[in-house]
Design a binder for these strands. Structure first.
Lengths: 211, 211
DNA sequence: TATTGACTGTGATATTTATCACAAAGTCCT
DNA sequence: AGGACTTTGTGATAAATATCACAGTCAATA
């Protein structure tokens, strides 16, 4: 388990008691890159606070197609798993580890208790929802209004922000995230290369557009 | 202004002090059907709690195209306007009155104060975010995975849930909400009529599909 | 170095959606 | 009744995206 200072660094401004409750009741779990942390429809048993690594949040449809929504980084939390008593407890999202990750898992029975007990937890929950809500708005904006070339550019920029200019992604992986086909992604990337926005390599490419 | 009992009926389970603060500081405003209540990019000055009527929430793009996300009903609140100190205060959504509406407008300077002061307000804010977040997830699901025929069906079902089986909507209005063109909507509605899902009239149609 | 498998490029074609064009039908107003 | 305007229907065509087919390239490894 982490010690108080380590938790405090990730989640500043909490009450002392909250840190102690975390240490007492949370479990520090790890998962390797690529692991599925939460499936759609799965019963939610614990809240997830990211400690190390990056988590990707998806929508998923009946056939298993995926749609990328946003990233979670250390110090951030999964809004969906912050279940309160008055609400359904089935996950509506799919969460996957992008890198090796570690996270704090808190059994959901503490959610209501802590909301009552710790003001700083209350604020944290609100902040988490607000940030995720805003990410969803951006995702809707791209999806509803833009063509695939612009959506791909938006997607790449998000990745660049997360991981830097050199991205280790295959065309197929990108196509999965955007719910399109590999061929479409290949052709659009080739166009971006012609416009000198990227340099293409096998299994990776580099974002070089300056704007 | 509403009296305490009226507010209590719409927003049950609040603390007494919160009702009194509402009465003291909130303003009861009205707007006619079709009015714009909140523009994208607009500075948020007050939180909106719906008292009567139905409000529609949209995303909007640079060219003024709209994309319908969800409805707000009496007793519900606009998550976007529940601004806390630590966050930007520019609206990322467009809100319009569908019917004549009345709503309570609370200056945002009370948000932080009330979060500190009233536990029930805190819960209300979390609940609001959670409900809106879930609506956004549904919207993304439809937009990302479905073709226009299925999206139109989903849209109509949402409207039916709100307003009953007879919907007073022109094809152009539907097209605007779904960010598509009037012709596409006309053709798809005609198909639905052939399948006996709807009965078409001028300026309205009726949902008769049983499933 | 030969084979295998994953990844990429690209033409051809199909499907979906958008756009243009115009006619027909309903509504409102005088 | 006669316009003027809004709404709806529908063909023709264009543009965007999806799907199929297949070849070429790279990397791992037996």
């Amino acid at each position: 388990m982490l010690n108080k200072d380590q938790i405090k660094q990730l989640f500043p401004d909490w009450e002392d008691g909250l840190y102690e409750s975390i240490i007492e009741h949370a479990e520090l779990r790890t998962a390797p890159a690529g692991a599925t942390l939460l499936k759609m429809g799965q019963n939610i048993k614990s809240t997830m606070l990211v400690v190390e690594g990056t988590v990707k949040l998806y929508q998923e449809n009946e056939e298993g197609a995926e749609y990328f929504m946003y990233h979670l980084n250390p110090g951030e939390a999964c809004a969906v798993t912050m279940v309160c008593n008055y609400h359904l407890e089935q996950s509506q999202v799919l969460a996957k580890a992008v890198t090796d990750v570690s996270f704090l898992a808190i059994p959901i029975e503490f959610m209501d208790k802590w909301l009552n007990q710790y003001k700083s937890w209350h604020y944290f929950v609100i902040r988490t929802y607000r940030l995720r809500y805003e990410e969803l708005l951006k995702t809707i904006h791209e999806t509803a209004f833009k063509n695939m070339d612009e959506r791909l550019e938006f997607y790449i920029k998000r990745q660049v922000k997360q991981f830097g200019n050199t991205l280790k992604l295959t065309h197929q992986e990108i196509a999965n995230d955007l719910n399109t086909s590999r061929e479409v992604v290949s052709r659009l990337l080739k166009k971006m290369e012609n416009h000198q926005w990227i340099v293409l390599n096998r299994n990776s490419f580099e974002w070089i557009k300056k704007d």
